[in-house]
């Protein structure tokens, strides 16, 4: 439900989303250099693969978004990476939409970048329980912000969408838990196996 489809939002919201999206993607691209191009591409492919994975939760299942982890690993480059993932989903799977690419990119990538700005600098300083905590906070906060942004996009398009917007948030509470645990576990593993990956220098969107 994080993919808003074509036709639901008002023209103003779609246009604002497009403008914000283009600006942020351009900034993300600007912060990528020769060295980071393959890294961003490979990581954006990982996140695309993640979106194909369904994880069971209760009687249902959720497909992963992992935008918190994307932000933490890519910084500002999360914008172009997620735009491409969304474009591929729209063209090859029919998910989401075409005119809403801009607003969807902002709704999914911006929380990732915000989480990175808030927690990114701590990753190489903490360990163990603290890393679990920060990872959980980052992963679940990114999903919470995304569902809030989706809700705001809907609510700004019309009063009648407000119940749906509330439902989007409630429906995402379990997703927040799953993504929080997943993000934390992924960070703990990376920290153990290749700690250098989490140092700020390595984040693709922030060249040293």
């Amino acid at each position: 439900m994080v993919h808003i489809v074509d036709g639901a939002l008002s023209t103003e919201v779609v246009a604002t989303g497009a403008v914000l999206g283009i600006a942020a993607v351009a900034y993300g691209l600007k912060r990528m250099d020769i060295e980071t191009m393959p890294r961003v591409a490979v990581l954006s492919a990982v996140f695309f693969v993640a979106s194909l994975v369904h994880v069971p939760i209760g009687p249902s299942s959720v497909h992963l978004i992992l935008n918190g982890l994307t932000g933490l690993m890519l910084g500002w480059a999360a914008f172009p990476a997620l735009l491409i993932a969304l474009l591929l989903q729209a063209v090859f799977f029919g998910f989401g939409g075409l005119t809403v690419l801009g607003i969807n990119t902002v709704n999914i990538a911006l929380p990732g970048v915000l989480v990175w700005l808030a927690f990114g600098f701590m990753l190489n300083r903490v360990d163990g329980k603290w890393l679990w905590g920060i990872g959980f906070a980052a992963g679940s906060l990114a999903i919470a912000l995304t569902s809030v942004f989706v809700g705001i996009s809907l609510a700004l398009s019309g009063q009648e969408f407000i119940p749906a917007a509330k439902l989007v948030f409630i429906a995402h509470v379990p997703v927040m838990v799953v993504e929080g645990v997943l993000t934390a576990a992924a960070l703990v593993l990376i920290k153990k196996v290749r700690p250098a990956l989490l140092s700020p220098m390595q984040v693709a969107g922030s060249p040293a």
């Binding site: 990982v46 982890l69 690993m73 997943l182 934390a184 992924a186 960070l187 593993l189 990376i190 196996v193």
Partner: peptide, 8 residues
């Protein structure tokens, strides 16, 4: 989560 960490 570990699986995706490893994949990354």
């Amino acid at each position: 989560g570990y699986l995706f960490g490893m994949l990354l």
